[in-house]
C-alpha cells in the first residue's frame, strides 16, 4: 500500500541485483587474471627482449599504473565497447567475440527452441499418461537422451544426414554475409546434437513438475467445475508447472552459450567456446578476460529475463515486490 507499484519495485530490485552481480564478476575476473603469473609484455616480446624494451611496452600498455586505476580503466573501456587488443591475434577482442557470437548465439537459440519444442510436449504427455505404457516408453527414451554424449550423437547425425543422405554439410561454417542459407544449414546438425540432452532434461523436469501440480487441490477444483482431468491439467496445471521450468531454461541457455566447445570441435564451427579454449592455451589474458565478461553478461541477462518471466507468470511475486 502506498508504494508506487509493486511490479516496478520488483523490477528495480532485480535490475540492481544485475548491476551488482556484473560489478562483482568484473572485479573477480580482473584480479584473478592479474594474479596469474606471466607478464603480457614479456610474453609479447619473447624471452630475449631487454628489460628496457619490456618496461617500455608495459608503460605503453598501461600495465605500470596502480591496480585500481587499471581496473577502472578496464571497466570503462568495456562499457564503451573496447575490450582491448588480443596480442596473439592482433585484432580487437570485441571484434573476435562478435564474430564468434554470430555463430554461438544463433546455435544456442536454435538448440533452445528445439529443446523446448521437443522436451516440453514429451514431459506433458508423459505426465498426463503417468504410469501407463506411453509414460514408461518416453521416460526410457529420455533416460537414453540424457546418457548419450552430445558429440557422439552429433557424429551419428553426421553419418546419417551428411555422409549417407547428403542433406546437410558435415561441418565447417559459411559466414552469414556470404550465404545465410548455407550458414543456417551448417547449424542444424550441431543444434540438434546440443538440443538432445537439454530436451531430455527438460522433459524430465516438466513431467515431475506437472505430476506435482496435478496432485494439487486446485486441479480437483477445476475438475469439480466441469473439466476433464486432461483439460484441468492443460488449463490450470501447465502454467503452474512452468515456474520450475523457467529456472531450468535459464540455466540451460547460459550453459549453451559457453558449453558448446565439444560440439563446435566435432562440427568444426568457429564458436565462442573454441575461441576461449584457444585463448587460454595461448595465455591471451586480454581475450580470456573479455570473453569471460561476455559469458557472465550473457548468463546474468538470461537470469534477469527469467526473473521478469517469473513476475509475468506468478502474481504472488508482483504482489509482494520481494
Amino acid at each position: 500500500m502506498g508504494v508506487p507499484c509493486p511490479m516496478t519495485l520488483y523490477l528495480l530490485r532485480r535490475f540492481a541485483g544485475f548491476v551488482v552481480t556484473m560489478f562483482v564478476a568484473a572485479l573477480v575476473i580482473f584480479f584473478l587474471l592479474d594474479l596469474l603469473p606471466g607478464d603480457p609484455a614479456r610474453f609479447i616480446l619473447g624471452i630475449n627482449a631487454t628489460p628496457e624494451a619490456v618496461a617500455a611496452l608495459r608503460a605503453q600498455m598501461g600495465l605500470d599504473a596502480p591496480v585500481h586505476q587499471r581496473f577502472i580503466q578496464w571497466v570503462l573501456d568495456m562499457v564503451r565497447g573496447d575490450f582491448g587488443l588480443s596480442h596473439t591475434q592482433g585484432l580487437p577482442v570485441a571484434q573476435l567475440i562478435a564474430e564468434r557470437m554470430a555463430v554461438t548465439l544463433p546455435l544456442s537459440i536454435f538448440a533452445m527452441i528445439v529443446s523446448v519444442a521437443v522436451g516440453l510436449p514429451v514431459g506433458i504427455l508423459a505426465a498426463m499418461r503417468r504410469g501407463k505404457a506411453t509414460d514408461t516408453a518416453l521416460m526410457i527414451l529420455v533416460q537414453i537422451g540424457v546418457a548419450i554424449p552430445n558429440f557422439w550423437f552429433g557424429m551419428l547425425l553426421t553419418l546419417l544426414f551428411s555422409v549417407t543422405l547428403h542433406w546437410l554439410p558435415t561441418g565447417g561454417f559459411v559466414p552469414w554475409h556470404e550465404d545465410p542459407v548455407a550458414a543456417l544449414r551448417s547449424l542444424i546438425l550441431p543444434g540438434l546434437a546440443l538440443a538432445l540432452p537439454q530436451a531430455s532434461i527438460l522433459a524430465r523436469v516438466m513431467r515431475t513438475a506437472l505430476v506435482d501440480v496435478t496432485e494439487q487441490d486446485f486441479i480437483r477444483t477445476a475438475r469439480a467445475k466441469g473439466l476433464t482431468k486432461a483439460e484441468a491439467v492443460w488449463r490450470h496445471g501447465v502454467r503452474n508447472a512452468m515456474l520450475p521450468i523457467l529456472t531450468i531454461l535459464g540455466l540451460q541457455f547460459a550453459y549453451l552459450i559457453a558449453g558448446t566447445i565439444i560440439v563446435e570441435n566435432v562440427f568444426y564451427l568457429p564458436g565462442l567456446g573454441r575461441l576461449i579454449f584457444t585463448a587460454i592455451s595461448e595465455r591471451d589474458l586480454v581475450l580470456v578476460g573479455g570473453a569471460t565478461i561476455v559469458l557472465v553478461l550473457a548468463t546474468t541477462v538470461t537470469m534477469l529475463i527469467v526473473d521478469l518471466c517469473y513476475a509475468l507468470v506468478d502474481p504472488r511475486l508482483r504482489g509482494r515486490g520481494a
Binding site: Q216, D217, F218, R220, T221, A222, H236, R239, N240, V313, D314, P315, R316
Partner: peptide, 9 residues
Amino acid sequence: MTALNPLMT
C-alpha cells in the same frame, strides 16, 4: 488457499 489456482484472479 490450495483449492484455488494461485495464478488466476
